[in-house]
């Protein structure tokens, strides 16, 4: 793990590297339970969230994590792309770096934007979600949530990822992380919402949710990304809910201890029934809490090395 400067994706992380993050996150989870949930690990460091795509949850989670580590935070947000603003991404990034920055958390609507930025700056770059490509901290927090819930590793755990896999960076990172940790992943979606050449993914594929339900330990429900072009790829949406929605009736047919996860934001009544999302099987709130601990672990690992710090 030494020498890791950026977290750009789950791609390139092996099982020990992922487990390293999860172990660190467990320590920070404990910190978050204290009366004063804060440690001085990154005092004097500056973390910038550069969010060029609308997002509140992930940005707040990163900023909370940075503050719990005593880092200073700055936030740069813009609707739309750098192109829409007329400034090149390189110019935007150089301007921010000139302010004195140790880490950049990047959310961008285009795949690979954090990778490009990592080639331009000295600061550590964390991918906070790039286009359809990756969302590595989401995958780590999902693994962390499951590991805590199961009390064991993910080996042999049967995870069904349901819905709009094609457009989902959560799925791209999740499949890689889950399978690296030994889980058996099944993608469950209509053909139009599966990625091209899906046979090259480390996952099984089925179009039949009902046939799969009783096998699953985890139903991981994805958001239907109507703002990308999911709507054009589907018949009317009520048909989607009828075939792929996690209804109360479907949830009732799952294994007794099976759980439901969702990366948020949820579209209740399209992907998942409200009673299921808020019901006893749901780990949705645990996922949000885990997000802070995992992002603390990531920032600490990238910035907390003695090499760069004044007081780390």
């Amino acid at each position: 793990m030494t020498g890791m400067r950026h977290l750009l994706g789950i791609t390139g992380l092996d099982r020990p590297a992922i487990e390293c993050y999860l172990d660190d996150a467990a320590a920070f989870w404990e910190v978050l339970g204290r009366d004063i949930p804060k440690v001085p690990a990154l005092r004097g460091r500056t973390v910038v969230t550069l969010f060029l795509e609308d997002s509140t949850r992930t940005r707040l989670s990163f900023e909370t994590a940075a503050r719990r580590l005593s880092a200073d935070t700055m936030s740069f947000q813009a609707r739309g792309s750098s192109v829409a603003k007329g400034e090149s991404l390189l110019d935007t990034v150089r301007t921010i770096e000139a302010l004195g920055v140790d880490a950049l958390v990047v959310r961008h609507p285009a795949a690979g934007a954090p990778h490009r930025i990592a080639g331009w700056v000295d600061a550590a770059v964390v991918n906070g979600g790039d286009g359809r490509h990756e969302h590595p901290t989401q995958a780590l927090l999902d693994c962390f949530t499951l590991r805590r819930h199961l009390g064991t590793g993910l080996d042999g755990c049967r995870i069904g990822i349901i819905g709009d896999v094609a457009h989902s960076r959560v799925a791209r990172s999740g499949v890689r992380a889950f399978s690296a940790l030994g889980a058996e992943v099944t993608l469950i979606a209509p053909p139009t919402l599966l990625p091209e050449r899906v046979e090259t993914w480390p996952a099984r594929v089925t179009h039949d949710l009902d046939a799969e339900l009783a096998e699953l330990d985890v139903a991981y429900v994805l958001r239907v990304q109507r703002e990308r072009d999911a709507a054009r790829r589907l018949p009317p949406l009520h048909e989607y809910y009828a075939r792929y929605g996690l209804t109360e009736a479907r949830a009732a047919r799952m294994k007794p201890h099976a759980v439901v996860m969702h990366p948020g934001p949820m579209i209740r009544g399209l992907e998942v029934a409200t009673t299921v999302a808020d019901g006893p099987r749901s780990l949705v709130r645990d996922q949000v809490r885990a997000g802070v601990a995992v992002r603390m672990a990531v920032l600490f690992r990238l910035l907390g090395s003695p090499a760069g710090g004044d007081d780390a």
């Binding site: 792309s81 750098s82 090149s88 991404l89 390189l90 110019d91 795949a111 690979g112 490009r116 286009g131």
Partner: peptide
């Protein structure tokens, strides 16, 4: 124009 993400 090439100082942009791939998609842009």
């Amino acid at each position: 124009t090439k100082e942009r993400p791939f998609e842009e």
